[in-house]
Each structure stands twice: as structure tokens, then as C-alpha cells.
Nucleic acid binder design. Structure first.
Lengths: 229, 229
DNA sequence: TCAAAAGTGTTAACCATACACCCATGC
DNA sequence: GCATGGGTGTATGGTTAACACTTTTGA
């Protein structure tokens, strides 16, 4: 049961910053802690890395265990290791950030036994440990990355109208975009496939639905194409 | 002496990818291992993180201990934690990359007791552990980052002619640049201060020497300026 | 006087921006 | 018929890209 080493070893955890988006807001998934320290504070989902477990594997496992979310875009963010970041012992945390299609996951997370909830990134409670710093780094990464990698689609449903894509971008980069220029640019890239479907049950003219054309993106990328804004 | 934990803990190390540049090549600093495993193989400098030591502190300490290099640009790169990356025990490595002004450091590293040497990144020996992968990630990061952050100057001497800066960029991004356009662009940014000095001991017309104007950069950045290429 | 690199401007193509109205639909 | 958002084109200014010759210096 006890594990002994000649030199002291830190503990290693993974923490996940899970972003979701609904028509109004960019949101982040938080869990309310049940144990000390920071009991009842909200925190990023995460946990210890198994001794024979890869880092990304650990991140996926923790997210699935704690939130039920299973298929998501996941990328390593940064490693946080300030000596006193956890009051119990030295814990080094490898942080990941994830993008999920909120519509598909909102219910499961909310109905879980644990206290799990989505908070708007513009308005969230005080967090445990250094998790506010981690969230801040994740947000900055997302803002920067969404401009030069087509990852925005990971936050939208499979099929979406252009206006929703535009709103997503406007929300994340925090500035308005010109509708005509946005459409011109994004359509001219050849990354969107017209699904030939339109919105249902809207109280106005229904918009065409597009989907992200992954194979086309791969082809273009190989040919030297660079996504931008 | 022995340290005991209820659950198994991985060891945590830092490894450093130190880049330097001379008029011909982008180079990386390697150390020849004296112990098993991978005895006598070349490897990235690095070592264990002290239990009360910050990650970046550990990286700086290791680089100083192993190579004598003390003032450098240092940034966290990525964390590598595949379960079998070290044959002895589970070791998670937080990798950093560093940029140094080679001219100032070439001698010290080479004259150290340990077997330390600079290798061109285009032609280096087989490396220990997963260090080739780490180097590869570092190179890609450098190539990407040098285009949108003015970090190239960290690789040049304090004072340099424009042609040297251009050669540096051409070397790192691996494509030729037009001389007139390069000068126009870089000078129009207002980041270079004319030192009013010129090259000495050259067998042709001596070039003006510039230096990177750090305060000017900070001012511009605050005003929303974005360095690019 | 030759070799080697420094230094310098103009033009054309392209791209980003700004901007306003009509259309389709459901209520 | 009205409210709501969908969908569309053009003109201008700025930015990038292509391109070649003269100057300076030391050997």
C-alpha cells in the first residue's frame, strides 16, 4: 500500500477547462468541491494521473468520470507547478482545455449526482486553488487560437447557420464583425459544406445550415492553406 | 530519508531545448549522458524538479548547472508524460525552450567538464528518451512564434546589421525573403534603434548596426500594435 | 579594379474594409 | 402588414509582392 521513494516526489494531476457555447454565451464547466480544502468552492474538473496512464488519457478519463462528457476536442494548455498552489502537498497540474458542443452535453452534466454546472466565462464564481489563473490562460489561448485554427466549429452543433458562427466569433474575440465580409471570407475558404437543409421552427426566414468540411480542411492544409479569422 | 506516499507518484523533471544561432545555422545545445540508460547518447539538458522549487526555477537552475548559461529567454513548451518514456520509472517532463545569444555562450558550454556541444538543428545525433520528439515540438513552436512575436532578437548579439536579422528569419522559417521588403517592413515597425555604429573588420561596405528597442516595443504593444513577420 | 555585400523606390495585384437595401417567413 | 433576421455587391484605400541597380569598402 505505501509507495516509497528515495527522493520526494510531487503529485501530478490533470485539470480541464471545458468550454461550451450557447446562443448567448461562452461557458465553462465547473464542479463544486465536496472536500477540503476549498470545500464547496467551485473548481475545474480534474484529478490525479494514474501511474501508468498517459496525461491526455487521464484528462479524458477525469472529464468523463466527473461530467459524463466523452467526445471532445482536447488540447494540452499549460503546466502549473507553483510550490504552494495546493495547501496539502506539492501538486503539479497539467492543464488541458476542451471544446464541446454544448447542446449535446448540457443536460447530462447538469443532471449528474455531483454539483456540476456551466457558467458564463464573463461571470463565474470564485474558484479553488489557482484555477482562476488556469481559466484565464485557457481563455487567452482560445481567443488567440480561434483566429488561426478552425476550432470554432467544435463549439457548435453539427449543422449551423452562418449567423451563429459569426456570433460565436464575436463572442469569443469580443468584437463585432461585418456580416457581409464575414460571409464572404468564410465561404471563400471552402471549408463549409452546404447541408441543403434550413433552420426549422424559427419565426422568420430560415437560414441555410452548413457543416464544417473536415476532409476539405485537411486537403487545403496539406496544400499550404492557412486558416485565418 | 525515504519518502512514502499512499499512492504512487511519478517523478517530475524539466528539460530544456536551448537554441542558439550563428551566421550559418540554428543550433541546439546537447549534453552527452554519462549514465545509463542511454549512456553516452546525446540528450537535452534537464533534471529533477526540487520538491519546493517552481518549474521555471528548476529549468533555469538545471540549465545553469549543466551548461553555465545564465541569462536567457525561457518559455514553457509542453509537458511530456507518456508512461514508458523513461525505462526506469514513470517520469513526467515539463519541457522549456530557451533562446540565447550564441556568441556570448559558445565557449563556456564547450569548455565545461561535461560533454556539452552545439549541434545544427538540421543535423544532430540520435537522442536519448523521447528527446527528438521534444526537439521537434520546440522547433515547430519557434518557427510559428518567431512570426508573430519579436523573439528573434534573443538569438542575435545586442547589435546587429539588418542582413543578419534577415538571414536569421530565413533560416528559421526556411524560406527566402525579399531584401527590400524585409527592410521596409521591419524598419517601419519602429522596433529597431540605429546604434550609429557600423560593422568592423568586414571585407566590404560595412553595414549599420541596429538594436532591438525593447521600451518602444512595450509602448507599441500596449497601444495595440501586433508584430508580424 | 574587382568582389562582396549595403542600401534604396516604384508599380501592380490583391485584400481588407466600409457600407445599405431587399427578401423570405411566421405571426 | 409587420417584425425578424437572411442574404447579397461594390468601391476605396491600404498592404503585400515583385523586381534591379548603384554605392561603399577592403583586398
Amino acid at each position: 500500500m505505501p509507495y516509497t521513494y528515495e527522493h520526494p516526489h510531487p503529485a501530478v494531476t490533470v485539470d480541464g477547462v471545458v468550454f461550451g457555447y450557447d446562443e448567448a454565451d461562452l461557458k465553462v464547466l465547473l464542479i463544486q468541491r465536496e472536500q477540503t480544502p476549498y470545500r464547496s468552492r467551485w473548481a475545474l474538473p480534474g484529478g490525479f494521473v494514474g501511474i501508468d496512464e498517459g496525461l491526455e488519457d487521464a484528462a479524458r478519463r477525469e472529464l468523463e468520470e466527473e461530467t459524463g462528457i466523452t467526445r471532445l476536442y482536447l488540447e494540452q494548455l499549460y503546466t502549473f507547478g507553483a510550490p504552494k498552489r495546493d495547501p496539502r502537498e506539492r501538486i503539479i497540474s497539467v492543464a488541458y482545455y476542451a471544446l464541446v458542443k454544448l447542446a449535446d452535453h448540457a443536460v447530462r452534466a447538469a443532471s449528474d449526482a455531483k454539483n456540476v454546472a456551466w457558467f458564463p466565462v464573463a461571470d463565474f464564481p470564485s474558484l479553488a486553488f489557482d484555477h482562476e489563473e488556469i481559466l484565464d490562460v485557457a481563455l487567452r489561448r482560445l481567443k488567440a487560437k480561434i483566429r488561426y485554427e478552425p476550432i470554432g466549429f467544435e463549439l457548435l452543433p453539427e449543422k449551423f447557420p452562418l449567423s451563429e458562427l459569426q456570433r460565436l466569433y464575436e463572442t469569443i474575440i469580443e468584437q463585432p464583425l461585418d456580416k457581409r465580409n464575414f460571409r464572404k471570407k468564410i465561404l471563400s475558404m471552402g471549408l463549409l459544406a452546404d447541408t441543403e437543409e434550413i433552420q426549422q421552427d424559427v419565426a422568420h426566414r430560415a437560414a441555410r445550415l452548413y457543416r464544417f468540411d473536415e476532409p476539405a480542411y485537411r486537403r487545403l492544409k496539406k496544400a499550404g492553406f492557412n486558416f485565418e479569422l
